[in-house]
Amino acid sequence: MSTPRFLTLPPGVRSRQIDTPVGAFAVLEAMPVSGVPERWPALLVPGLTGSKEDFIAVLQTLAQSGRRVIAVDMRGQFETGGPEDPRAYTCAALGNDIDVLAHTIGGGEPLHLVGHSFGGLVAREAVIDGRTKFASFTLMSSGPAAIVGVRERAGRAMLAELPESGLEHIWHTRMEPEVLAAGVPDEIIAFLRKRLFANSPTGMTTMTGQVLSSPDRCDELTQVEVPTLVLYGEHDDGWPPRMQSEMADRLSAECVVVPGAAHSPAVEAPETTAAALTRFWNAAEARLLG
């Protein structure tokens, strides 16, 4: 679970809705100070129990490089509605949503795509299907296949409990004790509770199953000509750092390890993360335009 450190939107960042042919998506949109983007836009996709707010700390910095930056709630997450049909929450279906959203944002022009954790598994679907031209692709604290280790065990426990006990049980037995033990401020705890209960239970159940069973698609991803970055915290407790490093080698991708960060670099080390993304995006644009 990503825990935002603050919820106040920085200058130049606003909450809005983007309408697409497959539905409306709640987003946070950051614009350059001038109000006129000079570089290609970026789309940031959160993890399983996260939301667009997980990127608040990096949005203003990313936009200052001259681009429009958008963080989204996926279908069934927080402020984006979703159906009760489990088929809407597979990686393939959510990846199609990202495809359509990227086309709506970019208007057919290249766009930088970032997927955090489960969002990385979703975003790579859009990259692999090849319908949208992406300027670059970043896997942030994500992996080549199903999640492993302590987060796998937590996911399997949640998958077993959700259908019978519901989100209330998950909050009181798992998430609330975790954030209380971490000394999270009351305002943030209230937000995390509100966010969890706003999620679609069907979506949460299906997406948890997806992150626990996702196949390795690195070989397919290598067939797509897109500049790729693998970025993760040195203390990541999701996919092990070594696994992510090996994935970067397989993808011939650039690899950035964020010192001091764990599974949520955009929250835990926002300035370092934003600097790494901006440098990578600028370099990708220079190669593509040169």
Results as ranks from 00 to 15, higher is better:
Arg39Cys: 05
Leu167Trp: 03
Pro37Ala: 14
Thr138Cys: 15
Ala145Arg: 08
Ala145Asp: 12
Ala283Met: 12
Asp85Pro: 07
Asn282Val: 09
Thr202Asp: 07
Glu38Pro: 04
Tyr89Arg: 09
Gly143Met: 06
Gly23Pro: 02
Leu277Ile: 07
Gly12Pro: 01
Gly203His: 03
Leu159Gln: 13
Ser213Gly: 07
Arg193Lys: 02
Glu234Trp: 13
Asn96Gly: 09
Lys133Glu: 12
Gly35Met: 02
Gly115Arg: 10
Tyr232Phe: 15
Phe118Gly: 01
Ala283Gly: 11
Ile56Ala: 07
Ile18Leu: 15
Ile18Asp: 11
Ala26Ser: 11
Val150Cys: 11
Ala266Ser: 13
Leu221Arg: 09
Leu59Ala: 05
Arg195Gly: 00
Pro265Trp: 04
Tyr232Ile: 08
Arg153Gln: 15
Glu29Lys: 06
Leu212Ala: 01
Asp54Asn: 15
Leu94Asn: 08
Thr90Trp: 07
Ala182Gly: 11
Glu84Pro: 12
Gln244Arg: 08
Gly149Trp: 02
Ser117Phe: 03
Gly106Cys: 02
Ala274Glu: 13
Arg217Pro: 06
Gly35Ser: 08
Val257Met: 03
Arg195Asn: 08
Asp249Ala: 13
Tyr89His: 09
Pro241Asn: 05
Pro83Asp: 05
Ala286Pro: 09
Glu125Gly: 02
Glu29Ile: 01
Ala24Phe: 02
Leu121Val: 05
Pro201Gly: 03
Thr90Arg: 14
Tyr89Gly: 03
Glu164Asp: 15
Ala274Tyr: 09
Ala126Glu: 07
Ser136Val: 08
Leu43His: 14
Phe6Arg: 08
Thr173Met: 00
Leu44Asn: 07
Phe6Thr: 01
Leu162Met: 14
Ala92Ser: 05
Glu168Gln: 14
Pro86Asn: 11
Leu162Tyr: 11
Lys194Glu: 14
Ser245Glu: 05
Ser65Gln: 13
Arg131Gln: 10
Arg131His: 03
Ile147Tyr: 01
Ala253Leu: 00
Tyr232Pro: 00
Pro265His: 09
Gly143Tyr: 02
Pro241Phe: 06
Gly130Trp: 13
Glu178Met: 09
Glu168Trp: 11
Val226Ala: 01
Leu167Asp: 04
Thr278Lys: 03
Arg124Ile: 05
Ser34Cys: 03
Glu161Gly: 12
Ala135Gly: 15
Thr20Asp: 00
Trp40Arg: 07
Arg174Tyr: 12
Pro32Ser: 04
Val27Thr: 15
Glu84Asp: 15
Ala123Val: 08
Asp19Tyr: 03
Pro215Lys: 08
Leu229Ser: 03
Ile128Phe: 06
Ala190Asp: 15
Arg153Val: 09
Glu220Gly: 05
Pro86Cys: 13
Tyr89Asn: 13
Ala71Lys: 12
Gly166Val: 10
Met1His: 11
Gly120Trp: 00
His112Met: 06
Ser51Phe: 02
Cys255Met: 09
Arg87Cys: 00
Ile70Glu: 11
Gly50Lys: 06
Trp281Ala: 14
Val69Ala: 10
